[in-house]
Design a binder for these strands. Structure first.
Lengths: 117, 117
DNA sequence: GTTCATGTGTCATACCTACTACACATTTGC
DNA sequence: GCAAATGTGTAGTAGGTATGACACATGAAC
């Protein structure tokens, strides 16, 4: 339904309606992977590619990198590194937000964004 | 200096002073891995083991699971899953705390812990 | 109506990851 | 002083990750 591949295919096809430069082959070239590989990715014949490849796909298709990574079952390595610097604190923070409704989560995000220390 | 392996070795040896059941062999048995493998792990001859193995090592040695995983370059998969449910929000939250001093981070953690929604 | 682009099938590969199994020399306990 | 426990060297493996290369049939464009 909303697998990584089928989502990609839908988005690419949508872009293609406006601009036929969004073929499998041309997108693959811009991304820097083989067309056959992208084709397989879009049909979920292979697992989502590496973080780097997903990042470049996000760029080429104008998608949010973190969101696309999540759809591919991954989390950006820069976030992982930040978490690893304060593993216990971040673990409690994230688990503490497990059952928080989305708006409560966003409130915390906003608060941190505007926070002055 | 503080690689995963050397840290493990230090902690295990410390426990061993009080209780000689903390030999490489006996710990490995309780953890459920081969002694030779644990030996190599402690000498950093191989990369840190799987998340599951690190979790069991943490249990056996009385270490914090998230902290030990971090030392092993990993992040608990339950946290990853939570992040993947709200990738954009969590990305902004975590990156927003990148330069926050530890006490500011802990303040947010506490706030979330005590938060009622 | 041929040329060019397109999507995809098949095959192959290199490099990790995550270990197990066994043997051996040294040390320790009684 | 001998048996048992200990730490470690060597070798091997099963499965996953992340692709590349090439060929082929179909379709569209001019």
């Amino acid at each position: 339904m909303n697998s990584f591949g089928s989502y990609l295919r839908r988005q690419r096809e949508a872009l293609r309606l406006k601009d036929r430069a969004y073929s499998v082959r041309q997108v693959a070239k811009r991304v820097g992977i083989e067309p056959a590989y992208l084709s397989k990715i879009e049909r979920d014949e292979v697992p989502p590619p590496s973080e780097e490849a997903i990042g470049r796909i996000a760029e080429v298709l104008g998608e949010d990198r973190d969101a696309l990574l999540a759809l591919g079952g991954k989390v950006s390595s820069d976030l992982l590194e930040l978490i690893r610097r304060h593993p216990v604190a971040f673990a409690e923070l994230i688990r503490g937000l497990r059952d928080a409704p989305t708006d409560a989560l966003l409130r915390v995000v906003r608060e941190v964004r505007d926070g002055d220390w």
